[in-house]
Write a protein that binds this DNA or RNA. Structure first.
Length: 492
RNA sequence: CGGGGAGUAGCGCAGGCCGGUAGCGCAUCUGGUUUGGGACCAGGGGGUCGCAGGUUCGAAUCCUGUCUCCCCGACCA
């Protein structure tokens, strides 16, 4: 049995790292806090990206691309925004190197100092709104529905592969609207797109909600989010959608003439998900044997492992059958690989593909050929079954569906079991310490109380759920009146 | 930036106190036997011991300085 992974019980953080690295998703790079996304990890991201991109386009958005560099003066135009990001910006100050006169390689040429420093984008609101000023004159120019796929840099103190890296990949949608309501509708629509994507493709149930003031995006009026629960009972913000009001329009003086020729400020939204989703995926579904990937986004959905003996006729038979199955699965649009690499033995391959989270494995051996069967194994439950050869393709296709559903329901059950309604402070503290997960409790609505709770328990308000029922209650800390429960959790 | 740990072969580590031929496991290469849950046998290759000084006949080992990375905290998608 493989013992190359740390188990979740032993050390959850180490288990996560092992999975990322040994599963072939990513590795550390020469640059502190930055990672190399390896081909297998990038294939996973591409599958996620492609589906999201389709969904953005279905809702009327177009892709564009804005510069990675932002003039320093832009960032300071929106006060809250600069406050939020100033502490984690990489800054470009020079544009040239030269040979060190002392012979120690190259040095920054002091003659080549930039007039105005450039900030490596931590997010692109400012550079984009600078452009929007030129794009928008009249109500007929609105709405602008633009998305960009890009890398951004936030100089984080502590980093973790996928979950928090100094550079990460994401998409950021930036829209401009004539009315407040239209912008709010857009914000909510994109939140729904995210929730649908994460639930249906990543098989991960999420809570849709709105952030409290202290957790809000710097420069937003309202931040909506989807929150997911990881296997260790910690919450993870999986995506955010911001209603920006007129803050950026005012900062960049973006006005439009309405039908009555009145000049009005434009209403804005922005929304994003990042490679952090890959971290969520890993921590939600995987087990001590390795990654468990939802079929819809798995780079490889089915792998066929042959078990040869020395008999050439049998080998030929296995190869022919495998080729046939590959052809049929591909015709159905299923991503399949026949691993006939003779330098690895079957047991090695079983372990390897389990580590990599391939949902379905088909084993074809000499004995199977004699009996006209194949062994079909599913990654999520690790169950194996003997299937008649002429039913194998059908079975594999069915299993992919089953696994997708099973992963979702398993995660949903886990979340339900780890969401606790709490009405007293003692219970609040003990649930957070002993059980973890989401805690639904009343809160008096003040930032002071929120801060105090964070200080005492490390738990933060993840969101005020959109479907939260109105009920009379008392704040779990102060006892002051409250009208609805909010979700607390320790978070990534 | 505070506290803790670590830099020796691609990876994981031992050696260091007590200076004297640089070692182990995995990986890798060659040949063979194998193939139903990470195979076995035989042979081989690979390291200026993080870097710079110093002590010494001689430094991975002792001394001084320096750099980097990891873990725990404050900040964050």
């Amino acid at each position: 049995m493989s013992n190359i992974l740390t188990s979740r019980k032993q050390d959850y953080a180490q288990w996560y790292n092992d999975l990322v690295i040994k599963g072939g998703l990513a590795e550390y790079s020469a640059v502190r806090g930055c990672m190399v996304i390896k081909p297998y990890g990038f294939a996973l991201w591409e599958n996620m990206r492609d589906q999201l991109d389709r969904m953005f386009k279905e809702t009327g958005h177009q892709n564009a691309y804005f510069p990675i560099f932002i003039p320093k003066s832009f960032l300071s135009k929106e006060a809250a925004h600069v406050d939020g990001f100033a502490k984690e910006c990489a800054v470009v100050t020079h544009y040239r190197l030269k040979n060190d006169p002392n012979g120690n390689g190259v040095i920054v040429d002091p003659e080549a100092k930039l007039e105005e420093e450039l900030i490596v984008r931590p997010t692109s609101e400012t550079i984009i709104w600078h452009s929007y000023k030129n794009w928008i004159q009249s109500y007929r120019d609105l709405p602008i529905l633009v998305n960009q796929w890009a890398n951004v840099v936030r100089w984080e103190m502590r980093t973790r592969l996928f979950l928090r890296t100094a550079e990460f990949l994401w998409q950021e949608g930036h829209t401009a609207h004539a009315t407040k309501q239209e912008a709010i509708d857009e914000t909510r629509q994109m939140l729904d797109v995210y929730a649908t994507f994460v639930e249906e493709y990543m098989a991960l149930p999420v809570i849709k909600g709105v952030k409290t003031e202290s957790e809000r995006f710097a420069g937003a009026e309202d931040t909506y989010c989807i929150e997911a629960l990881m296997q260790d009972g910690k919450a993870l913000q999986a995506g955010t959608s911001h209603f920006l009001g007129q803050n950026f329009a005012k900062a960049f003086d973006v006005k439009f003439a309405d039908k009555d020729n009145n000049m009005e400020y434009v209403w804005a939204t922005s929304w994003g998900v990042s490679t952090r989703l890959i971290g969520a995926l890993i921590m939600a579904h995987s087990d001590d044997e390795g990654l468990v990937l939802p079929p819809r986004i798995a780079p490889l959905q089915v792998v066929i492992v042959p078990i040869y003996n020395k008999d050439e006729a049998t080998t030929q038979k296995i190869n022919d059958k495998a080729a046939e199955i590959v052809k049929e699965l591909k015709a159905k649009g299923i991503r399949v690989k026949f691993d006939d690499d003779d330098t690895r033995r079957p047991g090695w391959k079983f372990a390897e593909y389990e580590l990599r989270g391939v949902p379905v494995r088909i084993t074809l051996g000499a004995r199977d050929m004699d009996n006209n069967i194949a062994e079909v194994a599913r990654r999520d439950t690790r169950e194996k079954e003997s299937i008649a050869l002429d039913k194998v393709v059908e079975q594999a296709e069915q299993l992919l569906e089953d696994i997708q559903m099973n992963l979702y329901h398993k995660a949903l059950t886990f979340r339900n079991e780890n969401t606790t309604r709490v009405d007293s402070w003692d219970q609040f503290v003990s649930v957070l310490n002993d059980k973890g997960g989401f805690v639904a409790a009343h809160w008096d609505g003040t930032a002071e109380t929120e801060d105090k709770i964070k200080e005492m328990t490390k738990a933060t308000i993840r969101c005020i759920p959109l479907d939260s029922v109105q009920e009379e209650g008392a704040c779990v800390l102060t006892g002051k009146p409250s009208k609805q429960r909010v979700l607390f959790a320790k978070a990534y």
